[in-house]
Simulated scan of single mutants.
Amino acid sequence: MPTHPFHQVDVFSAVPFKGNPLAVIAEADGLDDAAMQAIANWTNLSETTFLSRAQNPGADYRVRIFTPQRELPFAGHPTLGSAHVWLALGGRPKGEYVVQECGAGLVRIKRDSDRLAFAAPPLRRSGHVDAELTSRIAAALGLQPSSMRAVEWIDNGPGWIGVLLDSRQDLLNIKFNVLALSQQPVGVVAPWDPAKDGDDAQYEVRAFTWSGVEDPVTGSLNASLAQWLIGAGIAPKQYVASQGTVLGRAGRVHVAQDGETIWVGGDVAPVVKGTISV
Rank of each mutant, 00 (worst) to 15 (best):
V107A: 03
A59F: 00
T3F: 00
E96L: 01
D166L: 14
V178Q: 10
V240K: 00
K175C: 15
L116Q: 05
P78V: 10
F176D: 03
R70M: 03
A38N: 10
E96T: 05
A35L: 14
V255N: 04
P270W: 12
L22T: 08
S135N: 13
R149K: 13
R108G: 10
L45I: 11
V205T: 05
L225K: 07
C102V: 11
S242A: 15
V24A: 08
P57A: 04
E260W: 05
G30F: 02
Q8E: 06
V205P: 11
R111C: 06
A14Y: 14
L72S: 09
R53H: 11
F50G: 05
T79F: 01
W42K: 13
L31R: 06
G244T: 15
K237Q: 12
R249M: 13
P5M: 12
A207T: 09
G265Q: 08
G91C: 03
G219T: 15
S146V: 14
L89I: 12
D197Y: 11
V85L: 08
P68L: 03
F66A: 06
T209L: 08
E204S: 09
P5C: 09
P2H: 13
Q238D: 06
N56D: 07
P191H: 07
A150V: 00
Q144H: 13
W228L: 03
Q202R: 12
L123G: 09
I262L: 13
Q184Y: 11
W263S: 13
I161H: 00
A269M: 11
P185L: 09
S147W: 10
G103L: 06
P158T: 04
E152H: 07
T218Q: 12
G233L: 08
K237A: 15
P78A: 10
L221R: 11
S13Y: 14
T134F: 01
S113F: 11
N177H: 15
V272E: 00
R92W: 02
A59C: 05
I161G: 01
G91Q: 01
I39G: 02
P93N: 00
F66Q: 04
A83Q: 03
N156M: 04
E47M: 09
L133Q: 14
E47P: 05
S167E: 04
I39K: 01
V163L: 00
G157M: 01
K175P: 10
I262A: 11
P194Y: 08
Q100Y: 11
V24I: 08
S126Q: 14
P145L: 09
Q202H: 14
V107L: 04
H254L: 11
L225D: 10
E71C: 08
L106K: 00
A250W: 07
Q238T: 05
V246Q: 15
